[in-house]
Amino acid sequence: MVLIGMLDSPYVRRVAICLKVLGLPYEHQPLSVFSDFDIFRKINPAVKAPTLITDDGQVLMDSTLILVYLDELAAGAPRIMPGSSPARLHALCQTGFALAACEKTVQIVYERRLRPQEKQHQAWLDRVQVQLQGAWRQLEVSVREEAPDCLSVAGISIAVAWSFTQQMVPDALEAGDYPAVASLTALAEQQAAFIATRMAC
């Protein structure tokens, strides 16, 4: 398998970590959707990261769909998604808020870095920041009530999202307001799969 995309993307990084946790061999091609657009387009015409090229040459994209495929592929290995219904639903809820936090962080980054300052829409940025803070408040409550294993899909998603938010938009929220999330992330970032996939930005 070949994983295509830069590790500065939280979506690419969470797939890379899950591949390592599941013990699935893969090659990583760190192509950028910006600077490597034409090369990327030849592999995936949608130019979307992450892209996974399966062993039989199929193009699979969207980190959640990729992880569904990988979890089934590694059925004999320790699972990253709980099998029982209540635990699975809880993991899906936590993962959903983590992905929302990633999305809102990306939106802030794109607005600030890709749009000229005189054309930035502050009302839009304020709205997105409220959504970002809401996602993290919900996750803080959820992790305090029941922290996921840091090498589960929920734990990986939360930790990757928190590291990404802290690195890219540290001014968007008060880090001290989220001690449970920060503690989970600190533990996760000490794991071999996380160390091997450090953000490259």
Rank of each mutant, 00 (worst) to 15 (best):
L3E: 02
G5L: 08
G5T: 04
M6Y: 01
S9N: 01
P10S: 06
Y11F: 15
R13V: 05
V15L: 07
L19K: 06
L19P: 07
V21P: 00
V21L: 14
L22Q: 12
G23Y: 06
H28F: 04
H28Y: 04
Q29K: 13
L31E: 04
L31H: 02
V33P: 11
D36V: 10
I39H: 00
F40S: 09
F40K: 10
K42E: 15
I43G: 05
N44S: 12
K48C: 01
D55Y: 08
D55I: 11
D55A: 15
G57R: 08
L60V: 11
L60Y: 02
D62M: 07
D62A: 06
S63F: 13
L65K: 06
D71I: 04
E72P: 00
A74Y: 10
A75E: 12
P78E: 12
P82W: 03
A87W: 01
R88P: 02
L89I: 11
H90M: 11
Q94M: 15
A100T: 09
E103L: 10
V106Y: 05
R112P: 00
R113M: 14
L114I: 02
P116L: 05
Q122N: 11
L125N: 06
V128S: 08
Q131S: 08
R137T: 13
E140S: 06
E140I: 06
R144T: 05
E145V: 02
L151S: 12
S152F: 05
I156D: 04
S157I: 08
S157W: 05
A159D: 02
A161N: 03
W162A: 11
T165A: 15
L173S: 10
E174D: 15
S183F: 00
S183H: 11
T185G: 02
A186V: 07
A186H: 08
E189T: 04
Q191G: 07
A192G: 01
T197M: 07
R198M: 07
